[in-house]
Design a protein around this nucleic acid. Sequence first.
DNA 1: CCGCATCCGCGTTGATACTG
DNA 2: CAGTATCAACGCGGATGCGG
Lengths: 213, 213
Amino acid sequence: MTRRSYGQYCGLAHALDLVGERWTLLVVRDLALGPKRFSDVLAGLPGLGTSLLSDRLRQLENNGLVERALADRAVGVVYRLTEDGEQLATALGPLTVWGAAKLADEPAPDEWRPEWLAFVLTSTFRHDQAAGIDDCYEFRLGDANLFVIVADGTITVSEDKRREPDLVATLDLPTLAAIGSGNMSVHEAINSGKARFEGDPDAGARAMQVFGS
Amino acid sequence: MTRRSYGQYCGLAHALDLVGERWTLLVVRDLALGPKRFSDVLAGLPGLGTSLLSDRLRQLENNGLVERALADRAVGVVYRLTEDGEQLATALGPLTVWGAAKLADEPAPDEWRPEWLAFVLTSTFRHDQAAGIDDCYEFRLGDANLFVIVADGTITVSEDKRREPDLVATLDLPTLAAIGSGNMSVHEAINSGKARFEGDPDAGARAMQVFGS
DNA sequence: CCGCATCCGCGTTGATACTG
DNA sequence: CAGTATCAACGCGGATGCGG
């Protein structure tokens, strides 16, 4: 009887039985942005050891949330979410947005990575508002950049400039967290000087549409 | 530097820093159904010790998610969610529904409590569809009953019969989990004999409206 | 170097006993 | 009823080692 379970016939308790252990949901979050190899997941989660990541990935695999796949361009395997895993990632959206709202009260930390903010962008993304939109938005956060590509009703977030952006937003971390969580509107951010938007004004309107501000 | 933190500037990581420890989210779930005293929360969470519950409640209080209040009818205090705590509980809805969908694959356990299913009902409840509806639905699950009262766009779940039900549904746990998670439609459940609905047909239609099947 | 297992020290948790 | 105190057992983080 190792592997503790709450043993309650409840949706939340069962979800936590499956993915409630330390690091597990952050692994899901990272894989939600795209398939990754073992060492890339590890690098994105400071403090997590190789043994534990190995355990977590196996649990996720056994529960049908993650699968191994052959890497595209190189040897080795990558881990990627299954359909069930994608649904889990989607279900984490509101919790992520809630956390981002609390986060916005706090100052930016010493160390951070742009990918950590990518997930909240996908969480506030409204699939139903994105039909027919085909844009690229660049977010400039200090010396790091995030490129958000909206196409075919889907969102992709990347640190690489795969496409010329239609809109460039310059802001700091707490402001992005506040906007992403709905705590602050884009208008407020611009008027208070906390954010600057440049580029196609129509693209700006479309961005506000799909991100629901 | 006790009290482990992920230390990532990410909505999900921050949410888990605040409420990601063992038992914490289940305490929030239980309080989401209404204010409770220490011993009632404890009784609803087998396996949780008094020390840990004490710790968790203090953490939730320090984070502004729970507050102590004077009990209505008796001496002593009750714990109840703050506005922030309510928002957290709402944000747990999709995760709860996801877990309920996975739960529906499994057989009903030996021991269970009706309140454990109450939360998934509130999670699938659509506030925006409930305007003008004033109903009571009874769910019969073996020898336990759940009474759902929909009024003024809000939902209340209770084990006590506070009101004459307009609709009585008889089904088993996995079926309720499957319906609650959207895995099974009410029509399917009825046609396959897994659920039986009796009472006002109009109330049945309204129930399906607010629970989104 | 990548993926993973094994071992160890320590913080967290679970269970019981005890107190206001 | 509402906790605190105590302690054993477990989970986690870090380091090391081993086979591709």
